[in-house]
Simulated scan of single mutants.
Amino acid sequence: MMLSSLEKLFPIILNIPDVNMRLTKIIEKLYENHPPCPQLYLYSSGDKVVPSHSVELWIKEQQKIGRKIHSFSFRSSPHVEHYRNFPDLYSSQLHNFLQDCFKQTKQQLQAL
């Protein structure tokens, strides 16, 4: 019941002009000043808060500008439930991402 109430309330709150304007400014700043570090996106088409197509568009934009992207779609998992529903797979994705990050850092240090 609470989830249903929140699902109805969030669209209303997020569409209040002042809130919407602040969110838009935050997203614009993130887009303009996104750090060049590797990025990991764990998402799902079952997420009702963050649409998977929005995540996928963002990933493509980041790849176009040369960012190193790791991503995985859990397909049916609701928002922030990926670890709870798929703990081994989630941990594996995170582990692989961190290994790749540390490998790149080690290579950069060796190049110095």
Rank of each mutant, 00 (worst) to 15 (best):
V49M: 15
I69C: 03
S54N: 11
L3D: 15
I59E: 08
V55A: 03
S91Q: 09
N20R: 15
L6C: 01
E28Q: 15
K29F: 03
S92Y: 09
Q108V: 02
S44H: 05
Q99R: 11
V80P: 15
S91E: 04
M1Q: 10
K106W: 06
F86E: 05
D47K: 11
Y83C: 07
S54D: 09
P36V: 00
K106Q: 12
E32V: 01
R67T: 02
F72A: 03
S73F: 06
I26Q: 13
S52N: 11
F74N: 05
L23K: 15
N85C: 12
V55G: 06
P51S: 09
M21Y: 12
S4Y: 05
K106E: 06
P51I: 00
N15M: 03
S77F: 01
W58H: 10
M2F: 06
L9M: 14
H82S: 10
S54H: 08
F86V: 00
P87F: 02
L94V: 02
P51W: 01
V49E: 12
V80R: 15
L3W: 11
P78E: 09
Y90S: 11
L9C: 15
M21I: 01
H34A: 10
L3A: 14
M2H: 12
H34S: 08
I69T: 02
L14M: 07
D88C: 13
F102C: 09
L6F: 02
H95I: 00
H95C: 10
F86I: 01
C37K: 08
Q63I: 00
L94N: 10
N20L: 11
K29G: 06
I59L: 08
S92P: 14
N15S: 12
E7F: 09
I65P: 12
H79T: 03
M21N: 14
Q107L: 08
K106F: 04
A111K: 12
I12W: 14
K29Q: 11
H95P: 13
K60V: 00
H95M: 13
S77M: 02
Y90H: 14
S92A: 13
Y83H: 09
Y83L: 05
K103H: 11
I26L: 13
V55D: 04
P87L: 04
Q63Y: 02
I27V: 05
F86Y: 08
S91V: 00
C37P: 07
V19W: 10
S52I: 00
F10V: 02
S52H: 10
S76G: 11
K106S: 12
D47S: 06
S76T: 02
I16E: 08
F86C: 06
L89T: 02
P17Q: 04
S5T: 04
K48F: 01
I16L: 14
